[in-house]
Nucleic acid binder design. Structure first.
Lengths: 334, 334
DNA sequence: TTGTAAGCGTTATCAC
DNA sequence: GTGATAACGCTTACAA
């Protein structure tokens, strides 16, 4: 795979590199059509394709953006990546996808490698461990946006669900259905802001409605065990708000394992309308979040920055939407 | 964000670029410790990070590989990407992820752009539309591997499930449970080899067991409708083999919508052990495929090629595994 | 042990 | 209308 360069094309077309470059970049201000034709056929004959690495070096632009997600196995991340890729592709950009696994060290490595590779911008679901790096980037005016989370005190445009609202809607829904004993269960990850906001909102709702809080959290692998203990101690709530998809998986495993009837024994409302919730038995009431739109908005913002438009670096909140299905019962009718 | 170059470091450390370069690449054969120290602190003070684009141009190596998947929303693709990223990361490589959407044109664009960006290798779930390009790449010795599919007549190392075996296992399982009327349902995509192999294996099994075939396929959006018609015509099979996750979603939507009892009215066995099948009601009997291992093997092979080891470009088959759960009933006991 | 200079494949400047 | 030439930031013979 010997690489053909612009010099080869120039030689073959009997013109200079400059002219070929002009041709390639469609700077046609007065180029004779014979020259064009000669270059065009030289390119075809040699099957030439320009080297973007050289181009990037010269242009200081790689047409590539970096994505660092917390965990690609999260359905939300997949949808975010998909939306970014769609948008980037429409602008002839590519995306480098990195998995930080919620590990600040891994994330830090990725950040510096991506910068070293001169990506034109970065879209990140940040862990809470690299605030200083992010702050430095933001201060230096580096094109950077956050998705799903933001970092207190670091002024970076952020695109995420209105988490407080999400929990309010879920809580209210259950409360109106007659529940007083409403639990909240979620995966404990690194004190990510998303989780904290949801948890805080939950506690506030409990206060507001004057019911006592029942928070279950811990890392994924401990979830079923915790549920088991609540069952043993007869302390399970009558209704449960589930924080995200991965937590939901664990909850449903426990539900199956301990033969809990949904919704008769336990009503469930889960955050994120992932596909199987629709046809699950019973189908699950969820709060949907517009992941694709969030990703698109974030990407659009990043491209605005890349194009010199400098929109305010604020936190953009997206509206959650309640989708009622079968997993929440009328508590009075029980 | 003015970029600091190796020249700046050299100036600051009062040595030449060469020496800095040697330092960076740990070519320490006799470098005085004072020089090292001076360079080291210059780097720290300037917060220097090498420009990989320049390095790549010189080295003709970008430390980046391209992945083109048919559809990232497929759970299988996500797991493949994850495994590739894990492996690549451990070798300090990055991955550019592209979504061809099963569209040969989009795929072709991606191939040429990735080549222009000088990625060191390509891992592809190929559409059947760019055989010539792939053949040309393979013939030119370009590092390329396929995952999940392969292309007849194009000699590229391919890593995929033993599809025939998968269907045999599924069919045999149902047959042994007493079913004679076994259908196969799958999403129709572009005549990808995976789908063809599974379909052919199904037909062969029908012949071998002397039962008549009932094939349902079409694009995703038509699946529920087709099931509806079979119900209306009372031509639904008693057991169904489902080709992949996206098809399964549609089947389960129909099951829910038309109130089909699983497994009493319909036994189901699905290909790919995606997470929710385990706690679904009823839990679903599946044929698992080792997606992570497939991705890892493919990546390992690619890296072997990159390292000059040239393993045979053969088709590597991975063993499916039957996981019995609740969605298949004993037909005699019905 | 360290430095000089050429080169990787482009594009930009400026001249002809 | 087209072409030298330098430059982007790095590596690598080869010199000193």
């Amino acid at each position: 795979m010997k690489h053909i360069t612009i010099t080869d094309v120039a030689r073959r077309a009997k013109v200079s590199k400059t002219t070929v470059s002009h041709y390639l970049n469609e700077r046609f201000t007065n180029m004779s059509s014979k020259t064009k034709a000669r270059i065009s056929s030289a390119i075809d004959e040699l099957n030439y394709s320009p080297n973007y690495v050289a181009k990037s070096l010269k242009n200081k632009k790689t047409m590539t953006i970096g994505i660092i997600v917390a965990n690609i196995l999260h359905n939300f991340s997949t949808r975010i990546i998909r939306s970014i890729e769609d948008y980037a592709n429409s602008r002839d950009y590519h995306v480098i996808v990195c998995n930080a696994d919620n590990d600040p060290l891994k994330e830090e490595d990725y950040i510096s490698m991506l910068l070293a590779k001169q990506v034109d911008g970065l879209i990140v679901i940040p862990t809470p461990g690299n605030n200083d790096e992010f702050k430095a980037l933001a201060d230096a005016g580096y094109p950077l946006v956050f998705v799903d989370r933001y970092i207190e005190g670091v002024c970076v445009p952020s695109f995420l669900l209105d988490n407080a609202r999400t929990i309010q809607i879920a809580f209210d829904h259950l409360f109106k259905k007659g529940f007083k004993h409403i639990g909240y269960i979620s995966q404990q990850v690194n004190d990510a802001v998303t989780r904290l906001e949801r948890r805080d909102a939950y506690i506030e709702e409990c206060l507001r409605h004057d019911v006592k809080a029942l928070l279950i959290d811990g890392d994924l692998s401990s979830i079923t065990e915790k549920i088991r203990e609540h069952i043993k101690n007869d302390s399970m709530p009558e209704a449960l708000i589930v924080g995200n998809d991965l937590t939901l998986f664990e909850v449903l495993k426990a539900v199956k394992q301990y033969n809990i009837n949904i919704p008769e024994e336990l009503s469930i409302i889960s955050v994120d309308n992932i596909e199987f919730t629709e046809f699950f038995n019973p189908s699950l009431t969820v709060i949907a979040q517009p992941a694709y739109d969030i990703g698109t908005a974030a990407t659009k913002h990043l491209f605005d920055v890349l194009n010199g438009i400098n929109p305010k670096p604020q936190v953009h909140r997206f509206e959650p939407e309640l989708i009622e299905r079968e997993s929440v019962i009328n508590h009075e009718h029980k």
